[in-house]
């Protein structure tokens, strides 16, 4: 197992925990983002931090996106006063958005050259979905952040 394989495994395991805490049956791209943001010391985490994104701010942005999207059809989650999501009992499976993010990451570089920043790049390449919407609501310029990641990767080579 290469260092990157180990790193990837740790990222996915953490993303799975995030999905489970979310009560989600699938690991989604935003769970991968939460996982990267929580990963102390990686390049991906450093780039996110420089944009003002740590795990807590990503979580906050995701919660806002949820409420915002519901409000689009006149629904307020607060109106239900639901208890927080209960821990999903089944192990979350890899969802379509996370799969797509990983495929994009792996397409960025040869296997031996893959880094944490490629994972972030794969997530940031999404045009639609929860991640772009949450980032926009948090006032993050996604294209600029993507450029920043690319620069980091070029300077590492």
């Amino acid at each position: 197992m290469s260092a990157f394989d180990k790193y990837l495994h740790a990222v996915i395991v953490r993303a799975m925990d995030e999905a489970q805490d979310d009560g989600s049956a699938t690991i989604d791209a935003h769970h991968l983002l939460l996982s990267l943001a929580a990963d102390q010391g990686s390049t991906a985490q450093q780039v996110l931090t420089s944009a003002g994104l740590d795990r807590a701010t990503v979580r906050e942005a995701l919660d806002r996106e949820f409420e915002h999207s519901l409000s689009m059809v006149g629904v307020s989650p607060a109106a239900y006063g639901l208890p927080g999501p209960s821990h999903a009992s089944q192990q979350p499976k890899m969802g379509a958005s996370a799969r797509l993010a990983l495929e994009r990451s792996f397409a960025c570089a040869r296997k031996k050259d893959l880094r944490s920043a490629h994972l972030l790049l794969g997530i940031l390449q999404a045009q639609f979905g929860t991640v772009p919407r949450a980032l926009a609501l948090a006032g993050i310029d996604q294209a600029e952040l993507e450029d920043h990641v690319r620069q980091t990767l070029t300077s590492q080579e």
Binding site: G23, S24, A25, E65, F66, S69, L70, M72, V73, V75, P77, Y80, L82, P83, P85, S86, F128, G129, T130, R133
Partner: peptide, 24 residues
């Protein structure tokens, strides 16, 4: 919602809300 992206995101959010409601 007039924007397709908003309408589609609302579907995703409603599914999640329905799951939470089902759990409770």
């Amino acid at each position: 919602p007039p924007e397709p992206a908003d309408a589609l995101a609302a579907v995703v959010a409603l599914r999640r809300l329905a799951d939470q409601l089902e759990d409770a």
